[in-house]
């Protein structure tokens, strides 16, 4: 005798009913899983950040119309229909959250990490952003303002971290390699040591 858990049975029931009624095809389901498990991820966002560090015109475009600038690098679609790029500066640090559920810019960051979906992050990022950042090991200067961006199904945010000192002359690929997922959510800053240490 075989065994499936209650939730596995529910998913099988849902899928078989939807397939039978012609709403979804099994091959489509497999393709979607494959895409989000291995093809889409923070590497895409890192490419956007690295380009913006090297190309002031691209950075200006990103500021003006992030959706189009990001699409020009080939990253668009589900969850990226309306993007805003939030540029970190010495005066202002950006932090992204979704207080309602887990809206997240899939085309540039892939699927959200577990903590992004957790209630403590979703509530504390708004109430105590400095405390949350401290837990991530980030201590900002007292004079740096923290701006919170609450994602919605309509609008998704990509944080553009500051380019770290000591990266002068680096190639686009070298720069992209030090841009972490968390730095593009705002729960980390980018350092040059990551790769060259």
């Amino acid at each position: 005798m075989s065994h499936l858990s209650d939730v596995e049975l529910r998913v099988r029931a849902l899928e078989s009913v939807l397939v039978e009624k012609g709403y979804v095809e099994p091959a489509t389901i497999d393709a979607i899983v494959q895409t989000y498990e291995s093809e889409i991820g923070p590497k895409n966002g890192a490419a956007v950040v690295a380009r913006s560090w090297l190309d002031p015109q691209f950075a200006a475009w990103l500021k003006r119309d992030a959706t189009a600038a990001i699409a020009s690098l080939g990253f668009s679609g589900r969850g990226g229909e309306h993007m805003v790029a939030c540029f970190n500066t010495p005066e202002e640090h950006n932090l992204v959250v979704c207080t309602l559920c887990s809206c997240y810019p899939w085309p540039v960051l892939g699927l959200p990490p577990t903590w992004y979906k957790s209630p403590p992050y979703r509530s504390r990022a708004v109430m105590d952003p400095r405390g949350v950042l401290a837990e991530f090991g980030v201590a900002l200067p007292a004079e740096t303002r923290i701006r919170i961006w609450d994602s919605t199904s309509e609008m998704r945010y990509l944080v553009i971290p500051m380019r770290p000192a000591g990266t002068e002359g680096w190639s686009e690929a070298e720069l992209a390699a030090i841009v972490t997922r968390d730095s593009m959510i705002g729960t980390a800053v980018v350092t040059a040591e990551a790769v060259r240490a």
């Binding site: 858990s5 939730v7 998913v11 939807l18 709403y23 389901i29 979607i32 899983v33 989000y36 589900r78």
Partner: peptide, 16 residues
């Protein structure tokens, strides 16, 4: 695997 299946079913419904 069921988490991936559940995720993909919703995305497929959206795409349709």
């Amino acid at each position: 695997p069921w988490e991936a299946q559940a995720f993909a079913l919703t995305v497929a419904l959206h795409d349709k």
